[in-house]
Design a binder for these strands. Sequence first.
RNA 1: GGGCCGGUAGCUCAAUUGGUCAGAGCAGCGGACUCAUAAUCCGUCAGAUCCAGGUUCGAGUCCUGGCCGGCCUACCA
Length: 505
Amino acid sequence: MGYEITTPIFYVNAAPHLGHAYSTIVADVLARHHRQRGDDVFFLTGTDEHGEPVANVAADRGITPQQLVDENAPKFEAMGGPLEASNDFFIRTSDERHKAAVQEFLTLVKDNGYVYEGDYEGWYCPKCADFKTESEIAEGNTCPIHGIPLIREKERNWFFRLSAFQEQLEQLYAERPDWVVPAVRRNEALAFIRNGLQDVSLSRNAISWGVTVPWDPEHVFYVWWDALLNYRTALRFGRPGHDLTDSHWPPVHVIGKDILKFHTIYWPALLMAAGVEVPEKVLVGGFLLVDGAKMSKSKGNVLDPFEAVETFGADAVRFYLLREVSFGSDGSVSLDGLRSRYETELANDFGNLASRSLAMVRRYRDGQTPDVAVDPAIGAEFEGLPGEVARLLDGGQISQALDAVWQRVRRLNRYVEEQAPWTLAKAEKAESASRADLDRVLRTLVEGVRATAVLLHPWLPASTEKLLAAIGCPDLDWSGAALGAGPAPAVGELEPLFPKDVGDA
RNA sequence: GGGCCGGUAGCUCAAUUGGUCAGAGCAGCGGACUCAUAAUCCGUCAGAUCCAGGUUCGAGUCCUGGCCGGCCUACCA
């Protein structure tokens, strides 16, 4: 089954930061999970390269917009590596193939009768060469940047008939109450729709950096339409030699709450206008805060994702961001918080569980996992777990899915204490017990470690692979996520998965 | 102004359609154990679930009115 998962495409004007990394990680978790389930995954990310800000910066620097984006886009493309992002393609909206597909799509929308010519009227600053929104206008109708009076201006423009989709959008929200997750964001979008939709402009003629409107070459498309369409155009050429448009549509989008309106109102309306199915789901993340405030460099405690990756590794940063803040909510993150979870959860809970389990198999059974059945008591507590995790992930409950697995990690540590394998080993030597008890415990532990590693793989790709290799069970397929599905392997040596002597400097 | 969401142990948060739901993790304190990355496990502590009314046999969970906080309220991307 085809599965398209996307991040927002990042605007090339800024440098990659934590917010970009966060979206990428969330989407990557879903991509990896669906690969485990055997889906034909197309994980897409990329850069949004058109629009006025890019043109302005390029002009200031005396280079062409294309030169500017060619310089910046690689910084975003390079972000994926350190994060272990497994995207299948990286789209750039200045790609000719994208532009051609955008023109084709929007021409269809026009042919369907949803585009008309009109006048955009608003407050214009001649120095900015830009229209100002209501919230941008300073006191006395002046420009907040230049302080000069704004002029009421009209611009000849192409419009998209958004108002025509009022009813269809309301119906969409009624029929599919969880197509936007979480519900707060859904309600927000719905309230906006119910307030009444006005038509929005489709093109600009004051600037030239964008996708040319084919039926009116003096205009370029307003950058948002061009940007949104990346999710669809990339299916055509993102996998060389294959057109995935039919097999992988509709997509699942991961976005931040700042771009909610575009993805949950404009975008589905545009698709409806072209007679194309709307997205499967839109998963809306919150903001990551540092010390309760939006990220800023003024505090010393900023979390630079790339520095953090260098110190703690990509797995730890991925895990931390999704563990610390419940996906969909705003949340505070910090380097101290990362260090704390790295030690208490990754090193002490999970890493140590793996170490002690393998060590005992090596010590008591010469490294050969006994080929016996797992303890039914633990089996019962893992029952249905893969299904639960899959269901939670499909519902956008990324943090809850992770927590469900983590509870089992804790359970296995408790199991060790309950069973006290070292006591069983002594009893065995004193011949006051058969080997069966210790056999069962060791097999249960190895199998528990294996199954949780398979389940955790989307969050911790590198360390789970290392662990699974150490126990000779590299298979990541979702069918192996069930406790008891694995073999009774010979286990090898395992270095600490999350060594503690990092980041102490 | 209108709308949405939240206000639960020191901290971060859970509690299906109202009925052992007053919980978990972290932090603190005490203890046990030794397989393990001085890791793990157990016990313990606390909370009139923002306030005031109301509905009900029974309400964090529903209604009304307040208080506090966050967000949205259209074309920067």
